[in-house]
């Protein structure tokens, strides 16, 4: 395509177009290399449990981004899936002696079912009402987490055994545990990547961009939104389940609405609707919490200030602004 013959195009910042897409692919490759490299070597450079926490939250944020970034639905109740699955997995491992992988799958099945119920109710409404319904239902889940006999009430579930992977890999060995978490993260991340780049993902983006138009083209948008919601809830559950095995506890914090807020923050900071943004956002938030833990509750102030700076100065988030700056359309 000869751009110069079309003055209308020349006026616009050539954000898209073949050149931008090639650049985008190259840059994506760089991000993949950085991500995989980081995941492989991180436990030798940083405290492994800290990195595992990073990866769990990164997966959580990516799952959340599937909904807000690629479907345009703001859920304010994702802690219910993250925390709910953590409890289910924790209980299955502790009480029934289930091995780690089936335990995580149980958590995922639970959050998928919960996601179906919450999603089916919430997608009847739009915008802020949608968010409020998800929040209200998540609060009900929180109440159950506090009150049900098996959850341990205020204490949560303590001393969840890590168990043996496939019967012979001892997850009590930190590095074994680490590479297991790394594998869960990478598989989850690849699943999300594929969903975004699937025919289904195209319809989701159409719904995000212009729902009435998607409807008029014959797409039953409610069904697509519900499916996206269930997928997002399931993957958020996988993240919660994995976290409960890493830390060997499931607590009310995981199901608290603040957790729902935190995942929104991570996604916004990293870049809504970007592929790698939520990972970066999760790293920033978790790192801030970790390294500033010495200043106590002031951490919240720092995170709040970071959030305000993000919203005012770089609304597309770290990765979103980077993509804009480098003129690529997806990162």
């Amino acid at each position: 395509m000869n751009v110069t013959t079309h003055p209308e195009i020349a006026e616009f910042d050539a954000l898209s177009g073949p050149a931008g897409q090639t650049r985008g692919r190259a840059l994506q490759a760089v991000f993949w290399v950085l991500l995989i490299g980081f995941v492989l070597v991180a436990p030798f450079m940083l405290y492994p449990v800290f990195v595992m926490q990073l990866l769990c939250f990164a997966l959580f944020a990516c799952a959340f981004n599937l909904l807000i970034g690629f479907t345009g639905l703001l859920s304010f109740g994702h802690a219910a899936f993250f925390g709910g699955a953590a409890y289910i997995t924790g209980y299955a491992l502790t009480a029934w002696g289930v091995p780690p992988i089936p335990g995580i799958l149980l958590g995922a099945v639970f959050s998928a079912a919960l996601g179906y119920v919450v999603g089916a109710l919430a997608i009847r409404r739009q915008g802020i009402y949608f968010a409020m319904i998800t929040l209200a239902l998540a609060q009900i889940v929180y109440f159950f987490a506090l009150q049900l006999p098996f959850t341990g009430g205020e204490n949560g579930l303590q001393g969840i055994p890590r168990g043996h992977l496939l019967g012979f890999i001892d997850l009590n060995q930190t590095l074994n545990m680490y590479y297991f978490v790394a594998a869960v993260f990478m598989v989850g991340f690849l699943i999300i990547y594929r969903i975004i780049h699937s025919p289904f993902g195209q319809v989701l983006q159409a719904i995000r961009e212009n729902e009435p138009r998607a409807l008029s083209l014959g797409y039953n948008t409610d069904r697509y939104k519900l499916m996206a919601f269930v997928l997002s809830a399931t993957l958020a559950g996988v993240a919660g389940s994995t976290k409960s095995i890493v830390f060997q506890f499931a607590s009310l914090t995981d199901a608290h609405w603040q957790m729902s807020g935190e995942v929104i923050l991570m996604t916004l900071l990293g870049g809504l609707g970007t592929i790698f943004g939520p990972v970066v956002g999760a790293f920033i938030v978790v790192a801030l919490q970790q390294f500033l833990s010495g200043i106590g509750s002031w951490v919240q102030v720092v995170i709040g200030a970071t959030f305000i700076a993000c919203v005012l100065l770089f609304r597309r988030g770290v990765v979103g602004e980077l993509a804009r700056w480098l003129k690529v359309d997806s990162l």
Binding site: S198, P199, Q202, V203, Y219, Y224, M227
Partner: peptide
């Protein structure tokens, strides 16, 4: 435009396939 054509392939719910 492809979004209008896509439904005919019957793959619009296939989230596991590459686009």
């Amino acid at each position: 435009v492809r979004l209008a054509l896509q439904r005919r392939l019957g793959v619009s719910y296939h989230f596991w396939r590459s686009k």
